[in-house]
Nucleic acid binder design. Structure first.
Lengths: 161, 161
DNA sequence: ATAAATAGTTATACTTTTGTAACCATTTTC
DNA sequence: GAAAATGGTTACAAAAGTATAACTATTTAT
């Protein structure tokens, strides 16, 4: 009765809401049980893997995370020797962060480790279905990251706290 | 150097790992700020929306959630009059749970509310891209739920705690 | 040169999630 | 019919996520 008049956007959201717990279920549990990191720190690591170098504020902005949390995650990652601070010579307020060589390697390994269960599940699929899923996952990721990170590349709008 | 020899499964996982924080960012914040439920309880609600009636154990199984947590979430949802217990006449140990009429309506409304931000982001896309995203999201959801819930429909394997 | 704005940190409090252990009631097994 | 297994609840502890206020250091604006 309510579902009969759904727009494309409604349907997209409906599906994304269903995908969310499936990913949470599979990934968060592995992150906790198999790595020394918590999901939040791993998100930070992931965004640094995609972006050569980011300032503390930019990280918080892209992950919708207040600055104090970014500090905590970076402290954690530095203690694990996975990232390092790079001071900005032009503006000494800014502290940039980037992955260390060790961090890059570790991130790849962590991805391996946390995906063990999911890998087993994916092995149930034949090649055709795998290619179909890969194609779909790429599209979802590309479009979502495109529309969701836009404001972070602009000037204002991301100075919440 | 590490990425040169990736299988299809590796690439799928790589993309899913990137999608995960994008969804978490958008959905969890809205759930917390705009509803009286927490993400966990909403997951339970979502799975009951997809399945007419489930026992406590089945819920925990499908969400990889230990039984005591299921009890807590259901207590919460019952206090909000969104679900009700249905006692099994054949086995008085089993307690089934299903959405109330109010629960069904509320779930639809909650979906509306928590997707406000995402809806705004999606509005940036033209119709072609929207259709493309919908198609991809459906595929990801369908295939993931297919391979991940399999063990829960079988007998054993899901009696962890 | 002073005031305002920006980048980041420290500290604190609270909620949620997660992991167990111990327990009761019921059913199944032998 | 006693023992074992199953379904669920209660109770507690620890880890992680979340929100904010107050602070320092630096830069920008007037």
């Amino acid at each position: 009765m309510i579902t009969q008049n759904m727009t494309t956007i409604d349907k997209i959201i409906e599906n994304l809401i269903s995908i969310h717990p499936l990913l949470t279920k599979n990934l968060n549990r592995s992150i906790r049980s198999k790595t020394s990191l918590n999901p939040g720190s791993l998100f930070v690591l992931g965004i640094l893997n995609k972006n050569e170098m980011l300032s503390m504020s930019e990280i918080g902005c892209r992950l919708s995370m207040p600055k104090p949390h970014v500090t905590a995650h970076i402290d954690k990652l530095i203690s694990e020797e996975m990232v390092e601070r790079v001071f900005d010579p032009n503006d000494r307020r800014i502290i940039n962060v980037k992955l260390t060589e060790n961090g890059k390697k570790s991130f790849q390994q962590i991805k391996e480790v946390i995906s063990t269960e999911m890998r087993q599940n994916l092995n149930k699929l034949d090649n055709t279905r795998l290619e179909e899923l890969l194609d779909a996952a790429i599209r979802v990721r590309t479009i979502l990251s495109e529309i969701m990170t836009e404001n972070s590349t602009n000037t204002g709008s991301c100075n919440k706290i």
